[in-house]
Design a protein around this nucleic acid. Structure first.
Lengths: 185, 185
DNA sequence: TAGATTGTCTAGCGGTGCTAAGATCCGGTC
DNA sequence: GACCGGATCTTAGCACCGCTAGACAATCTA
């Protein structure tokens, strides 16, 4: 019995090593630098080992994305409990800024994660639920739509800022504006 | 003299053929399908011919993006003149929905187009200026910040909708909400 | 018509994701 | 302790990618 579980434990550790390394590589040099050869070399295994743990390269970034959803949901919850709408917005934008590669895997890169579906992972619904909770007081009759609009605004700010398409000096002012127009709606 | 200009004309037509074909291929199958080999075969030349017109593959999608900025700026202007804030928002989202690959080239794919810089192409400033013009009445003291927020919201709605991450049925409601909260700010 | 210029192609480099086939290790059984 | 069988890992290779050097053909200039 211990032999079997020891193998399984080793396998699980290898899987986490691959995931952690892929994430670090992506954050350091972008997802285009995460190739099977470079990743295999970084974890000191040959390429086929990766395929023993993940179906393909996309499955690796999807797994990183799922980690990201866990972290983001926790951050949003904390931000919301601390400072409501503004706290959640700050937490969202901070997460996107601090983990741009993970954010990309979650929301920008092509993925087979389905969003509005029955097969949607629970954590995705949880994340959406955090935004829903903080927005509902401002649109009790149709909170879903305002949630989508608010989320889209945050997503737009996050991606355009990460792509250096917004003035880097006006982070706080944009957040103030967004929080103001949502709460006056 | 006509010989020289005939050559130049042929060269220009070839360039446009490459651009048009790349754009069609991208809209039909996504940018990942636009490879030098497939594109060369589609225009019935060998791959090195592409490099006689464009420095590399990225330069092709950048050229497509510049076409897109021209079209988008014209659409935004028409929408704005027809129905102000709402008309512009509708025009923006319609363009992104009708030309998802071009929109990607403009705002999502990595590009060497700089945005807030002195070397920014005039057409980019023109496009931004359309949004600025329609938003200024609602924030006369600091129109730039509200412009960035409004643009980010439109961009977020466009990309999340194109990635099937928003309910496809509530297009109009989201637009109504966004226009409402901006104009009440 | 001879030479220079321009245009085009074939072939090839090093990289990519991914996989088949064989070697090797290691736990379970006699 | 010897051996078997399955899990694990590596080498080697496929077809594709962006991109370029060098040979060859077509066209313009003089």
């Amino acid at each position: 019995m211990p032999s079997q579980t020891r193998r399984e434990r080793a396998r699980e550790e290898r899987r986490e090593l691959i995931l952690r390394t892929a994430r670090e590589l992506a954050e350091a040099e972008g997802w285009e630098a995460v190739t099977t050869r470079r990743l295999a070399e970084a974890v000191d295994y040959s390429q086929p080992v990766l395929y023993g743990h993940f179906k393909n390269m996309d499955a690796i970034s999807t797994a990183v994305a799922l980690e990201g959803f866990e972290e983001l949901a926790a951050g949003l919850r904390a931000g919301r409990e601390h400072d409501g709408l503004r706290g959640l917005a700050e937490a969202y934008l901070r997460y996107a800024e601090d983990h741009p590669a993970v954010y990309d895997a979650m929301f920008v890169r092509r993925t087979d994660l389905v969003f509005g579906d029955a097969g949607t992972p629970e954590i995705l619904r949880t994340t959406f639920g955090e935004i829903l909770a903080v927005v509902t007081p401002f649109a009790p009759d149709d909170p879903e739509t305002l949630t989508e609009v608010f989320w889209s605004s945050l997503h737009g700010l996050a991606t355009l800022a990460n792509g250096s398409r917004l003035r880097p000096t006006h982070h706080q002012q944009r957040l103030d504006h967004l929080v103001a127009i949502i709460s006056h709606s």
